[in-house]
Structure formats: structure tokens, C-alpha cells
Design a protein around this nucleic acid. Structure first.
Lengths: 333, 333
DNA sequence: GGAAACTACGTTAGCGCTAACGTAAAGCCC
DNA sequence: GGGCTTTACGTTAGCGCTAACGTAGTTTCC
């Protein structure tokens, strides 16, 4: 910067001001300085400026996996809003493991982010302690936390599960299975299962068919395997709800391969509103979690918090609405 | 840090050394310092340390979109390897737009990354200039650049296109359409189309059926619409290659809906080895670009470059091999 | 047993930037 | 026209950390 200043015949302070667009530099001088800097290939060092200004422009984000289209959508929505506000996302992948989440959090915090976004509301106690001590806002997403760490944006996965259970019962199904995983990793999926099962019980339907399908992230393969288990152990099953659309797609394909009519004999439902569930045949009934919206709302919440100097936060908990999408895989049952 | 030093009864230098695991601190003292720091909730500021050490631990990465499973896989593979080497990925999304790529690059460079990973080899001239001036290694991925900016990891998309064309011709197809987009955005997809068309010509097949399917990222919807165009304009078509598996899936579903047998009447092929193409019925012939491998190789290359102080780089260009996966959507034609 | 080497610390300085303050010169007001 | 404000800069200091060097105390070796 000193070199640029000398070349432009001004002080480093003026260069700094010019490059940051400070209005107290005359237009002509700024243009000259910017041109000089460009010609010399000078690039402003955000690392040094952050040391002085105490602003990094980072927002740390942890997600279980980027291969899940829902989380990918959320990250995209979040990134877009933050970018408009001059903020850069620092991503950490937890692989559906809260121990890894703890590790990611501690690493990300060293970068002095201005806010921290987590996926889910289940964390290790060490992570909770760290986060309690942090002065930056923490936003939990994709859930409605019982003991919020600060802010939250999401929906009740229990409710989402119940929503689908109600739909299947309304369609006339009574012997309903759920395919998911309760390995203590995908907590949001487990909550959907819990909400689903409880709603079944409340409606007097059979609620003993929980099929363990392996470790997350579950895919079509897991769905196909689960269906084989169901046909073998519970031949009278008339509906299968899956923890994600990819699983539902695999399940439905396997049923069709076995010559079973969907939805005539067995109805299929999923979660996530993935592309595939819309275009397969029959199309799969699902729940749209509005992933992009969650990311967008989170970004807006952060922009809001950071621009409000007082701690008097406006809205601390944003609820997003999961939408039931009725499709061919259940409606003709 | 000074507070921790005082509390532990040592100098800040010793605290710094202890927290970084410098072996010149006795075990007992280190344990004591680490404990003190933890008790006080002290977190090391990487931003300040990077100013002194000139090492940020950042690797900047630009990808067109994270919603594409291939790029998601690549990012995951890359992140995993870099994480093992103490490096943090800084992600920028270009939305298949090289103007946005230029913007992302200039923003990311301000963070002083130690390496820069780009997707593709088509860049704006301003971006090429910036990158030529940078002293950090630049790795272009998902392509084999004609004018490499430094390093590269990828495969020839032209070759991948030709590979599939050859397979369709071998299967007996002659009137073959390609569904993609040539809007000057998805350069890798365009190259696959070019390689595909050239291979068709070389084999004396019809090569005039390029179907423009809209802006990237293309999905199942685009595939379904393209198929309608094909049936209308080129009813004698006996095979359809799509720029991505999601598109191929939409195309196949639409054909089946129209009562056309796949592969009996029309064969379908895709690209990307997405989950859906394996589990749909019939399963879709595709090309596996080994996305995760590309990310992994890129990460290893970076680790290698950064650990070798001399500029005498070992391998500058890594070739990854796309694999043809023959499946039900073409083999019974 | 004395020089050399090593160990385990502390001290000093500075990485590149900008907040806060200082200061001329110009503009403004009655 | 004297005092006020405003504009457009420059000067000083320091953000939190660690490389490089300095220094006691200990060990090694012939």
C-alpha cells in the first residue's frame, strides 16, 4: 500500500480511504489512486484490515453434508443474502456428527466470524459451552430448538412428520412403515420419525414399523433395501414414509420392480421436495421444507442483527413453514 | 493472550508456542497453559497470526453451483483432503457466469489464500490477468485447459462426449439428438456436446439434432421439454444424449409417459452418474466423471505444492478418467 | 573441566492496515 | 473580517500475534 501511495503521490491513509470508497477523497484523486493500484496489481489485504477494524466479514456455517440438495439450497440462499451484505461464508461440514460439529465450531471461531450458523439444535455439551461464551450471534437452523443458543430459523420436524402421517391416514392407510435412521446422527430425521409415529398412534394406526436403513446420508439404495425388509416382515403394509425423497424414490422403484402397484397397493411418501420426486412416475408425495427460504431468512436475520448496534434484537426466532405436496404416489390409494 | 500469559505465569510467547504445539515447551507447562486458556475461554486469533506468519490457511475455490451433485462431490473431496492439511476452503459460487467468476476471484484474493481452485478453463480476460499476476498456485479443474494458468486436474469433456457417441453408435443408433445448452455459460457441457457431435459425424451418423434446453443448471423439467421438441421435429430419432443425468431422467420419464419404449424405440444417455440414473427404471447409461476423485486429487496437488518450497513443481497436470457406465436405457436398443 | 551444543524460556519488533486525532485551506455567516 | 464550520487530506499508534534473536541453565564430550 505504501508503494501505491508513493506512486500516486499521497499518503497510505488516502489510498486506504480511496480503495474503500470513503467519500472524503475527491473523485479525481480516487480515480487516480484506484487506477494506480490496479496498474501495480495491488490487492487490499482483508486480513490486516480486519485486525484493525475488528470486522472479518466472515459468517461461519456448519452443515451436515453438502450433497443433500436441501442443505445445498439453504447454503445457496444464505450465501446470496450475505454476499449482498459484504459477508463471506466460511463452511464446515459435520458429516451428521456432533463431535465433528464441535471440532468445526472451534476451528471456525478462530477466524473471528461475526455470526455462526448451525444446522440443527443438538450439540455436544462442550460445543454448547463454547457457544455460550461467544459474544457473536448464534443461529440454529432447520429446527425449533428447545434450549436455543440465541437465534433460530426453521420449522418443527416433529410437526412435519405428523403432517405426513395425517395425510396418509386421510388417504385410508392404516399399516404404515417409516424408513429412516436412529443412529444418533441425523437428529432432524429422527424428530420427523417421532412426530410421524406419535401421530399414527393418536389416530389408532399401527405404529410399530420403524425400519432402520443405515447411516446418513441415506440414498435410493437404502430405500430399496428397506422395502425388501418391509415386504418380508410386514407384508400387509399399505404405506411407506421415508426420511428423504431419495430414499422414497429407491423404495418406490423397488416396489415397482417387485410388481407392486404404487399407490394402489402401497402408498409412498418422502421428504425434501427433491427434483426426482416430481419427475418420477408416479410422482412422489413429499414435504417441501423450503430450504432456500431458510437460508434466505437466516441471511436476512444476520444482516439485521449486525446492522443493529444495540443488543435489542428484533425477532429472535423465525419460523418457516414446511408444505405438504400431495402427489401420485399417495392420492390414488 | 496477554491475560492468559499472566494467569499462567509465563510470557505471551510461551503461550503462543504452547497453543501451537511447539515442542520447545515442557509437557507440564503446556498442559497448564492449555487448561488456563480453556478455562478463560481464550480462542487464538488466526487473523492476527496470519498477519505475522504470512500464512492464512485458506484455499479459495470457485464452483458454478453447489446444487449440482458432481460439484458438491468435488468440493467434499477437496475439503476433506485440505482439512487434513490444516487448510480451510473459501467457497465462491459463480452461477455458471464467468463475469461473476471474475468478481469472486477478486474478492477471494483479498483473503490472501494460499492457492486458488477454479472450475473450468474459460475465464474473462481480466480474470486471466489477475491470475497471471498472482504468486499463488492456480488449479483449473473439470477440464483440460488449452492455456493453463498453472496447474490442472480434470478430463477432456470433448473426449467424454465422444465416448458416449461411440457407445450409442455401437448400440446401433444412427439418428441421435443431444440435449444441452450453448448459451455461453456451461462451457464444460458445451465441450461434451462438441465432442459428441464430432464423433457422430466421423461415424457417418446424423449430427444436426442439437436441442437447446435453456439456462444452466438444467434439470428434469428441461429434459422433458426437450423430448417434446424432439418428438415433434425429429420423430425418427432413435437416441437422446443429455448434458446431465437429471436432464436424461426427465427426458426418459417424458418418453415413457408418451408410451415410447426406452431403450426399445429410443435410447437415453446422460452424464454425471447421479444417484437417480442408477435407481430409475430402466437405469440410465451415463458417464462417471469421478467428481470426488477430482476434488481429492486437487487437494493432494495443493498439499504437495505448498509443502514443496522450491518452485520445481512435481506434476502440473493431473488427468482423471471419466468412465462409461452402460445401463438399461441403451443396451437393449 | 572448559568449550560446545542444546533446552526452555523471554524480549523486541513488525506483519498491513485503519481509527482517532491533528491540521491546513476553503467556505460560510452575520 | 473575525470566528465558525467543513473539506480533504496527513500523522500517530496499535489491533494480536509470532519470527528472529537473546539468554540463562543444563548437558555433552574429549
Amino acid at each position: 500500500m505504501a508503494d501505491v501511495a508513493k506512486a500516486a503521490g499521497v499518503s497510505t491513509m488516502t489510498v486506504s480511504r480511496a480503495l474503500r470508497g470513503d467519500p472524503s477523497v475527491t473523485k479525481e484523486r480516487r480515480a487516480h489512486i484506484v487506477m494506480t493500484a490496479e496498474r501495480m496489481g495491488y490487492i487490499l489485504d482483508r486480513g490486516a484490515s480486519q485486525l484493525r477494524t475488528r470486522k472479518t466479514g466472515f459468517v461461519a456455517v456448519t452443515v451436515p453434508s453438502i450433497n443433500n440438495p436441501n442443505f445445498a439450497d439453504s447454503v445457496r440462499g444464505l450465501t446470496a443474502v450475505l454476499e449482498e451484505n459484504g459477508l463471506q461464508v466460511l463452511l464446515g461440514f459435520t458429516d451428521y456428527d456432533i463431535e465433528r460439529e464441535e471440532l468445526m465450531i472451534s476451528q471456525l471461531l478462530r477466524r473471528q466470524p461475526e455470526a455462526l450458523v448451525l444446522t440443527g439444535s443438538t450439540h455436544t455439551s462442550a460445543a454448547r459451552e463454547m457457544l455460550a461464551r461467544t459474544s457473536i450471534p448464534v443461529i440454529e437452523t432447520w429446527d425449533e430448538p428447545d434450549q436455543p443458543l440465541g437465534y433460530s430459523v426453521g420449522f418443527s420436524n416433529t410437526y412435519a412428520g405428523a403432517l405426513m402421517a395425517q395425510h396418509l391416514i386421510d388417504t385410508g392407510c392404516r399399516e404404515i412403515a417409516f424408513v429412516g435412521c436412529t443412529t444418533g446422527t441425523d437428529y432432524r430425521g429422527e424428530e420427523r420419525a417421532r412426530g410421524f409415529m406419535e401421530a399414527l398412534k393418536k389416530n389408532g394406526a399401527v405404529a410399530d414399523r420403524y425400519i432402520e436403513a443405515g447411516l446418513p446420508p441415506l440414498g435410493a439404495q437404502a430405500g430399496a433395501e428397506a422395502v425388501r425388509k418391509i415386504l418380508e416382515n410386514y407384508p400387509k403394509t399399505d404405506a411407506v414414509m421415508c426420511v428423504a425423497d431419495s430414499v422414497a424414490f429407491g423404495a418406490m422403484t423397488e416396489l415397482q420392480r417387485a410388481g407392486i402397484n404404487v399407490p394402489g397397493q402401497i402408498a409412498i411418501a418422502g421428504f425434501g421436495a427433491y427434483d426426482v420426486s416430481e419427475f418420477c412416475s408416479p410422482s412422489i408425495t413429499t414435504i417441501n421444507p423450503n430450504a432456500h427460504e431458510i437460508g434466505k431468512l437466516t441471511g436476512e436475520m444476520i444482516a439485521n442483527i449486525l446492522s443493529t448496534p444495540s443488543q435489542a434484537a428484533t425477532i429472535k426466532h423465525q419460523r418457516s413453514q414446511p408444505i405438504l405436496i400431495k402427489r401420485g404416489s399417495t392420492v390414488g390409494h
